[in-house]
Each structure stands twice: as C-alpha cells, then as structure tokens.
Design a protein around this nucleic acid. Sequence first.
DNA 1: GTAATTAATGAAACAATGTTTCAACTAAAG
DNA 2: CTTTAGTTGAAACATTGTTTCATTAATTAC
Lengths: 140, 140
Amino acid sequence: MKPNDILQQHEVKKTLSRIALIKALQTSNQPLSENEIRVRMLDQYDRITFYRNVQTLSESGILHRIVIDNTHVKYALNCCEKEHHHAIDHVHFYCKECGKTVCLDEVPVQQYPLPDGFKLDECDVVIKGYCKDCPGNHNA
Amino acid sequence: MKPNDILQQHEVKKTLSRIALIKALQTSNQPLSENEIRVRMLDQYDRITFYRNVQTLSESGILHRIVIDNTHVKYALNCCEKEHHHAIDHVHFYCKECGKTVCLDEVPVQQYPLPDGFKLDECDVVIKGYCKDCPGNHNA
DNA sequence: GTAATTAATGAAACAATGTTTCAACTAAAG
DNA sequence: CTTTAGTTGAAACATTGTTTCATTAATTAC
C-alpha cells in the first residue's frame, strides 16, 4: 500500500516527512529504531518532526511504538489488514545480540488477572532472547 | 530484614549508599522511581552512585528494575523469601493516572511460543491501566 | 588495631531520547 | 488563488543513563 493512501485512509495530512517515514518503515521487514529510520530518510529526516509524526501516526493507527527497554525503542507499521492493530494485541521479540525485533502477530497476549477494582488498559509483552542466526545462544 | 544482612547475604560490600538505598525501598510498599528514592535518601543520594548500585544490587539479586516505558523506570526490592526472584517471573501493573506500580507476585508469566530456533532469555510483562483509587477509569 | 588491598564513590563531561515554544511554512478546502 | 488550520524546523531544555579518573571507604591480612 502506498504511503499516500495510508495517510489518506487514516485522515491525516499527507506531508513529505510522513511519506518518507512510512516509506522508510516499508523498506524493512522488521521494526526499526530512530537511528535506522534516520539513515533511511536521509535529508528528509528531522528529529523533532520525527517524534511528532510518530505520535500523530501512532494515534491514528498507522504505526506503533515498541518499547524494548528504557533505552531501546522501535517503530513498526501496523498490518494494514487488521483495522485496530496496536502494540497491545501481540507479543514482541527482541534479540539481545543483534537487536533484531520481531512482531509476533500470531501470538495473543494472555489475560492476566488483576486485583479487585483495577482496570486494564493495555498490556505490553516483550520477550528478550536470541534469534535463530545469533549464536548468543549461550548453550551452543 | 536489615539492609546490612541483605547485603551480607548476597556478598556485596556494605556501604552507606547501598544501605540508604535499601532502606529507602523498604520504607515503601511499592516500587519507587529514581526521584522518589532520591527524596527518601536525602543527602545520601548521588546519581552516579545510585545507577551503579542499582546495577550491582540487581545483578546480585537484591532488587529489580521495572521498565514501565522508555521514560518511566521503577525499582523494587526482591522478596527475600524467594531465592531467585527477578522481574522475569512476575507481572507488573502500572497505573496511568497516579503512577503507582504493583508487583503482581502471584501472577506467573505465560510461556509464549517463539519461532523455531529462537531462544528465550527473559519476558517482561507490564500491564497499564487504572488502580482501585483512581477514577481515571474512563467508564466511571 | 593498623597497614595493605580492593572495591566504591563522586566530580566532570558526555550521550541518547524526548519535549516545549514560536515563527515560518505547507497542505487541504473553498 | 486565497484562506485557514495543521505541520515544520530552530533553539533550548529535560530526563535517564554512562564513562573516565582521582579520591575515599570497606574488607582482608597481619
């Protein structure tokens, strides 16, 4: 799907920086960090605009933020098929060796029991480990 | 349990700043942020030492870090009863209104299926919502 | 208890991530 | 093509965390 159409469909203004941001994420088959996005956006990149667009586009359901930990944040486009696809509904995997991040779209999040009176809003699940290609697999 | 004994039991040096840090966490019935700890430590507090102690004491199993998101991190003492009690084994709840954080010690983390060849190391589960006392409960 | 050893401390300086204000600008609508 | 409302980028700042290095404190051996 073209960046232009994505933006139109979600009723946010089609600006150059937003198109470039979406394109950057589309060139990758995995979530990207700000740095990785900056490299792909080249001179279309501006830090302040980036952060604002991330906020706008995540609010409108175009992309989602994946907080690996307090120093590693990734960004990924939502699957276009699913209407309301937030970081809430699926699990993320992060490789501690190569940093590769995977959206495990097919893995649903368990409904954890909460104390009485507590209300759930979202549930973030991040699995950290080692991916197939990484021998960080300390047992190997 | 006295801070001194905790440190001795885990075979790390008993220093004033570590004792003050443990005391600070003991005065609270919930995980604390760096700021909340600083207030409780008063002049015993030094940022650099704090971060180093957090690392040392979490490595030795005395406390654990709870990453709510990239801008909110909390610290909590491990339950002394359980020997190897990391953030891995239980779920954390965070109130989006008052910031209160609760270790749901009794709620085990689900075993999520990973793609072939992927190796699990740890799994962080953070539930965000509204606690009993907070009317942020948007339905109310 | 004191000297020697080893680890912890705190200052300075830096790095990464993110936010706010405000004037200039651009996209969409008429 | 003009208006209007939202977006942009510069400057400056806030928070969280790290690194180096000389000083200091805690443990060990005597």
